[in-house]
């Protein structure tokens, strides 16, 4: 699957990290890092991450 985070929207809330820690993480400065092409087995987690992002910055593009 393909994940896109709109970094203009993202405000580093980190909610996505709790929902899908294998895909989203924070660097030491608290900035978001993510895997753009995670395994399809992680789809549920990534959908959850997209749901809980307060800025609705995460898009799943199949």
């Amino acid at each position: 699957m393909k994940v896109v985070v709109d970094m203009n929207k993202c405000q580093d809330h980190g909610q996505c990290v709790f929902a899908a820690p294998d895909v989203f993480s924070m660097d030491d400065a608290g900035r978001l890092l993510y895997v753009a092409d995670p395994d399809d087995a992680l789809r549920d987690d990534v959908e959850e991450a997209a749901d809980v992002c307060p800025l609705q910055a995460i898009r799943i593009e199949d």
């Binding site: 580093d12 980190g14 990290v17 709790f18 924070m26 400065a29 608290g30």
Partner: peptide
Amino acid sequence: GQAAVMGAARYR
């Protein structure tokens, strides 16, 4: 700021 927010996350 961001550092404080990340501190809270550690207690989650």
